[in-house]
Design a binder for these strands. Structure first.
Lengths: 251, 251
DNA sequence: CGGCCTATCCCCAGTTCTGGGGATTGGCTC
DNA sequence: GAGCCAATCCCCAGAACTGGGGATAGGCCG
């Protein structure tokens, strides 16, 4: 299996990923490299609900059919604990590390148990986030009872990253790269204090403005994002990196 | 220089990055690995304007001082063309590839030219984006007249990714609060729909409850988090991974 | 110079959220 | 059986947000 050096395998996979012109090409390349790395399954996916997502979402995998049916029936594309964990890190992680990344609910533990019952054991997930696009990841999994080969994880990191980028290219993500709204400096200030839980009156005191001005700035920020409520405005600005969790939580 | 296998070097750097407990440790590790890969400089940075950024933004580099002074005087942290290009891809790219990723303005070409005049030639940038945090990247550069070694780029991809993640950890970007409150399933449902911008009345219709019940669930969720406003409740639940960006943005 | 953008301030009415109180039912644990 | 928790429903008053309108001033660009 591993008769080629690690970086040589990465370079070969990179070449295959670059040459792939269809999703089927990419599936073939991923099946080959995941097997060579000692994994039983792979899944490259955007974190969307595939029952309602448009054609722009990507999902390429060789998971067992009954796991996929179960997954989709519960719309787990958006709430699966592995997907949620991948939104908290910039590099890959084994599924045993998920509790270090997010808090697991009772329902989450149930999902992980059902995956195990349907043939999915441990795995390794490489997050891939491009600002303005749906978050996604490329995962490699082993069957229950088998172990993830730790020494191979740097290679899996590279394979996951290259595969995701190839999928973006093949599926025309780049040309769909829409521009996130921009906020003025003042709008952003107000959004940040709002996200920190302050009222307009408090923000006005903090920034030395009138309360009505704060209201206006937040209204204009909502209009730029075309959202009806401040809660979703805060979330959107967070997702775009205009404000960050660190900004919000610092004293 | 390259007396160790590629993946061996990646594993060694990964080990150093994991052991690093200060930014200085990480700078030392980066200086060593970038030199071993044939680069003259490295720069790991959040894409923010450092003149106005909060304390949480990271910038670790060994660039020439006069380039940095020039960069900061023009507040290029946000608008630098390499930074902008890194927001259009999920894997690393050489700087020669920047025009394939973004449209270069006249000002951009001027920036790249001035970099060259101040000792920075070609380079390779690894994007790193985590939703809810400022976008960032880790770059490796060569002096003018020198070439980026193409065969080393998979290793640079790994080094950049591992370094960025180590910087996130060292600088406390994200630490899972193991004592965070738990929400009941129903509270979580209501928080999710609130974060999606729905009113209590709308959520009540969606979930088949009375409006007052929705109000109660959200109030109890706020009380568990001890926050005064729904905006910060949404942010906190996001941070803890109880709800996800994907779930909020789905149709 | 006109138009656009940003920043700032004001007004109004109606909707939505917030704090506070009340209650019942069912399930689980000691 | 008592106590606790989750889920559900109701009431009240006031604070805060939302949509809509008005305005001025300064800076920038064609």
């Amino acid at each position: 299996m591993l008769m080629m050096s690690g970086l040589g395998m990465a370079r070969e996979f990179f070449g295959l990923a670059r040459q792939a012109s269809t999703n089927a090409d990419l599936v073939q390349a991923l099946a080959c490299v995941s097997s060579n790395m000692g994994f039983d399954y792979f899944a490259l996916t955007h974190h969307v609900d595939f029952a309602s997502a448009g054609h722009a979402a990507v999902r390429l995998h060789n998971y067992p059919d009954d796991w996929v049916a179960w997954f989709d029936a519960r719309r787990l594309g958006v709430s699966d604990p592995v997907h949620r964990a991948s939104q908290a890190t910039s590099i890959g992680f084994t599924w045993q590390q998920v509790p270090e990344l997010i808090r697991l609910t009772t329902n989450d533990r149930h999902v992980l148990q059902c995956a195990r019952e349907r043939g999915i054991g441990d795995g390794f997930t490489v997050p891939a986030h491009v600002p303005g696009e749906a978050t996604g990841s490329c995962s490699f999994a082993v069957a229950p009872g088998r172990c993830v080969l730790v020494d191979i994880l740097p290679l899996a990191q590279l394979a996951g990253a290259f595969a995701f980028e190839a999928a973006r290219r093949i599926n025309g993500m780049r040309s769909l790269n829409t521009h996130a709204p921009t906020l003025t400096e003042r709008q952003r200030d107000c959004v940040l204090w709002m996200a920190r839980g302050k009222t307009d009156w408090e923000i006005a005191r903090i920034l030395g403005l009138s309360q009505e001005t704060v209201t206006q700035h937040l209204k204009q920020a909502r209009e730029r994002y075309d959202v009806p409520k401040r809660s979703v405005l805060a979330v959107r600005a967070l997702f775009d990196g205009l404000i960050s969790f660190s900004d919000i939580f610092r004293r």
